[in-house]
Design a protein around this nucleic acid. Sequence first.
DNA 1: TATTGTTATACTCTATAACTATA
DNA 2: TATAGTTATAGAGTATAACAATA
Lengths: 165, 165
Amino acid sequence: MALVDAESRVLDDHHQAIKLWLRMLACTTRIENVIRQKLRSEFGTTLPRFDLMAQLDRESEGLSMGELSARMMVTGGNVTGIVDQLEGEGMVVREDHPSDRRAYRVRLTPAGRRQFRRMAAVHETWIVELFDGWNAAQKTQVHGLFATLKQHLAALEETKRQESA
Amino acid sequence: MALVDAESRVLDDHHQAIKLWLRMLACTTRIENVIRQKLRSEFGTTLPRFDLMAQLDRESEGLSMGELSARMMVTGGNVTGIVDQLEGEGMVVREDHPSDRRAYRVRLTPAGRRQFRRMAAVHETWIVELFDGWNAAQKTQVHGLFATLKQHLAALEETKRQESA
DNA sequence: TATTGTTATACTCTATAACTATA
DNA sequence: TATAGTTATAGAGTATAACAATA
């Protein structure tokens, strides 16, 4: 009996994880789609472009292409394309890197910063509305729980990296 | 002072929502990437293909193209493409719909069901490992919280649909 | 007329690999 | 040799619109 109970607990735990994942994925996907659609219809931009500008907004000194690539978790070729677009629209500039002539220092132009701040303010109201199903205490709770999960995921990746090395 | 406090609470609440969203999105994206990569390397398949087979596995009677499209939340043309592939590999079949000659009834073949079940079992172990940063009580808690959020998101969509009508 | 599904097309997002120019 | 960035290419994933067959 003890064995059977242990097995059914394992089964329950498995199904619990799957159900949790599917529900969480459904919520995230839905929110992401709303954000993507609103960014396109209201500002004519996309999530990666918004993300790139957000990274630059945090760094008044600017970032190299490689740093942008690392922070956005995409490979270099993609960053080149997005920066090309935004530079063409006058939102960012590639300045020479002071000490490394291979590299650039990408930064927001004044117009780019104004435009980003304008978008970010509206973006924030969308997020607030979308998460209004949770009260402040619940948001705090989930925020803490995801900190734990994030650590766990980072540890898994670290383990895997060491195995492959 | 009361006004200032109220304002700073609003600000805090906004930042809380944004930080929560960014952290949640980071976790979801990371998990999704792991799943995508493992599905490709271990089973030579993709997330939408896996998802389509999962929908069919739940419905022994099969589903029409339109029903698949609605459940997967993608437009019809995409479903045609995925069903074409899976039919070519003998995983699913398009049967005539009994009462509507415009429609099909797509269902898993026995081989398709065997293959899906095999994949699903392994997929479940990936999910369990990825979510192992939370204990059972925490998983239950998050599952419940996401039920609330899902309802809230559905309500928002409903409101919007009525506004546009 | 409205609906089911297909076709054709295009765009976003991403990864990989070969390339250049510096370091 | 190694690194920063670019270019070219390929593929996943998606949406849109025009179309044929049937309701």
